[in-house]
Computed example of a mutant assay.
Amino acid sequence: MSRHEKKSSEAEPSALEQRSVDLVTRLLKVGIDGLGPFDSAAEVARAARAEHPSTESAVHAVVRQHSRLVAGNGFVTGLGGLLTLPVALPANVFGFHVLAVRAVAAIAELRGYDTTKPEVRSAVLLTLIGADATDVLKSAGLPTGGRLVALVTSRVPRPVLMLVNKGVGFRLVAKFGARGLLRLPQRALPVVGGAVGAGADTVMFRRITKNAEHALPPLTAGAAQAVQGPA
């Protein structure tokens, strides 16, 4: 291998790493904290709680609301077909995951989790990658299991959480590429691409929220105190 090739191969992982870190940073900032007119997850949770009598009915309302938003995002970004695909596909993928993060974080808030806590924010990210979350937790040396309560009720060192977030970012960046290639033939057709985008995004979103509802159950009093920390 030449010196130039060696330098290039060494630069690729760091570029991917930076993309992964940038992605999760943006998802957390916009999806959980909100940006401009885009309400934060806590605000979404408060609005749902004000309109619905029980926690679970509020959770279902958040899922329904964001399902409509996800479908609309997928439809609009797929309308232009091949001509707009280079711009529309990245916008669609990022928009989808921002909405997914906000929905999951709102569910977490409704069930007693504090989404300002770094452990809870990492748990929200982990729900985006399904079964891959086990591998990410294992590689960070954290307990694995079907639920994330063990993570959010622990005091995890910040470098470990950064490793978790980076692991999620790696998988999402890889998934972005694969997802775009799989849907490319259908999305290349104007209008048809919109319908394909809306349908596929809604199915994927429902899968994520169902995973989140299982992985982040309502906190018990003891678990809630552990998450909030000592008074």
Score class of each variant (00 low, 15 high):
84 T>G: 02
133 A>Q: 00
161 L>D: 10
90 P>T: 11
78 G>W: 05
135 D>E: 15
165 N>A: 15
151 L>G: 01
146 G>Y: 02
156 V>C: 09
159 P>A: 11
112 G>T: 00
76 V>P: 07
74 G>V: 01
72 G>H: 05
161 L>E: 13
167 G>T: 07
140 A>F: 00
167 G>M: 12
158 R>H: 14
154 S>H: 06
107 I>P: 05
136 V>G: 01
154 S>Q: 12
162 M>I: 10
80 G>R: 12
82 L>K: 11
129 I>D: 08
165 N>C: 12
117 K>A: 09
96 F>M: 05
97 H>Y: 15
106 A>V: 10
109 E>F: 03
91 A>D: 08
105 A>S: 12
117 K>H: 06
138 K>V: 03
75 F>I: 04
101 V>K: 07
161 L>A: 10
126 L>P: 04
154 S>E: 11
120 V>Y: 01
81 G>M: 07
92 N>K: 12
84 T>S: 13
153 T>A: 02
80 G>Q: 09
115 T>H: 01
136 V>H: 00
120 V>T: 06
145 G>F: 01
86 P>T: 02
78 G>R: 08
139 S>C: 01
167 G>D: 14
145 G>K: 08
115 T>E: 00
135 D>G: 11
73 N>D: 09
161 L>Y: 12
130 G>W: 13
161 L>C: 12
74 G>F: 04
159 P>N: 11
155 R>T: 15
105 A>H: 01
72 G>N: 10
151 L>Y: 03
166 K>C: 12
148 L>M: 04
95 G>S: 07
